[in-house]
Computed example of a mutant assay.
Amino acid sequence: MNKKIAIIGGGIVGASAAYYLSSLPGGDQFNVTLFDAGAGQATKAAAGIISPWLSKRRNQQWYQLAKDGATTLMTLARRANLSTDIYHQTGTIITRTNEKDLHDLFILAQERRQDAPDMGTVERLTAAEVKERIPLLTNPQPGIYISGGARIDGEALVTTLLDQAQQVNLTVKRGKVSLDNQGNLITATGQQRFDEIIIAAGPWLNELVEPLGIKVAVRPQKGQLIELAVPDYGSQENMPVLMPEGERDFIPFGHGKLIVGATHDDEAGFNLTATPAATQDLLNSARQFADYLTEGDITRTKVGTRAYTPDFAPFFGRLKGHPKLLVAGGLGASGLTTGPLIGRLLAGTIIYGGTPDWSNYEKPLTNYFS
């Protein structure tokens, strides 16, 4: 008889875990049910950049996770046959206005490339060369180009992964669920039995594990982005993503669409209302580089809630004292980069068993659970 697996949360970790439980060898021995409440999910509101290699975070475990996460996404894009509207390796350009900062960034890129060949080529660009690659810009800055960087549509990625998994062994159920004090899953129709449960509910993780007498060091952060209509250059689908210093990311998509964002609001909690102040902040940032943009060009606003830990590092693994429960959280703004790898690792340990050592990717779970 097939084992029954539950996943709570249909964001990037939950959707990735469901996909790998359906596609890794041995996954056909499992029946998987994913429960998702459908509100506030960070992934559905995210359009992001996959370019972790020049991060100056001191946490080497996070860097290893993000670096290998970028590689995982490259493989996933081919394996799941993702369209370029979902994942596109356009390259990224990281800009600096100070000459020394730009030089130091170029040296760092050359060093990081030694053990990260998926970075691709590294080039130093003048402001004119940056404009040549991103014609949308009116005020370009010099920068470093990394060919391995990519842009990604979080909502479309999750939808595609779940659609493919549903063709194999996944059932998706919309609605809120909870756990009892023994770790059993409770739905609107009562208790349901599962052999193992992955809890990937973002900042709602605390609420879910509270009946177990557990607290998690994770907090919500509101993020908002805007979509704008821009001139539809023939090359726009292949334009690199711009990561400016001190400003919001500038992400050209194809077909005359530009995404700018996202904000980081630590005070709004779970509030999902778009605010005029955040919208103006994003527009002002975009106008630093494309001064023709106006409020009338905004076609859509998205809001989601990220989960952060005090040290800004994600965690994942089997919950101590509750062997059938696996947890993941605290991905923050790097969820689209790290989430697919975390989902694959969790799916792998369910399929193949054992107690894998993930200390190269994360600190002990006891750092976040009490």
Rank of each mutant, 00 (worst) to 15 (best):
T275F: 08
T275I: 10
T275S: 14
P276H: 12
A277N: 13
A278P: 06
T279N: 12
T279D: 00
Q280F: 06
Q280C: 01
Q280E: 12
D281Q: 10
D281V: 01
D281T: 09
L282E: 00
L283N: 10
N284E: 13
N284F: 02
S285A: 15
A286P: 08
A286R: 05
R287W: 01
R287C: 14
F289E: 05
A290D: 06
Y292V: 12
Y292M: 13
L293E: 00
L293N: 01
L293Y: 06
T294G: 13
T294H: 14
T294C: 13
T294Y: 11
E295M: 12
E295R: 14
E295F: 07
G296K: 15
G296W: 00
D297P: 07
D297F: 09
D297W: 09
I298Q: 06
I298N: 02
T299P: 01
T299A: 03
T301F: 03
T301R: 10
T301W: 03
V303I: 07
G304A: 04
G304S: 04
G304R: 01
G304H: 06
R306Q: 09
Y308M: 15
T309K: 11
T309M: 11
T309Q: 12
P310L: 11
P310S: 12
P310I: 11
P310Q: 12
D311Y: 11
D311R: 11
D311A: 12
F312D: 15
F312M: 14
A313D: 12
A313I: 04
F315W: 00
F316R: 00
G317S: 08
G317L: 02
R318Q: 14
L319P: 08
K320S: 15
K320D: 14
P323F: 11
K324V: 07
L325I: 15
L326Q: 10
L326S: 08
L326M: 14
L326W: 14
A328C: 07
G329M: 09
G329S: 10
G329P: 10
G330A: 11
L331V: 09
L331N: 12
L331H: 09
L331W: 07
L331K: 03
G332A: 07
A333C: 07
A333M: 11
S334T: 14
S334W: 13
G335D: 01
L336G: 03
T338V: 14
L341C: 06
L341Y: 03
I342Y: 03
I342D: 01
G343H: 00
G343L: 02
G343Y: 02
G348A: 10
T349W: 05
T349Q: 15
I350Q: 12
I350V: 15
I351M: 06
I351K: 00
I351A: 02
I351N: 03
Y352C: 00
Y352R: 06
G353V: 05
G354T: 06
T355Y: 08
T355A: 13
T355M: 08
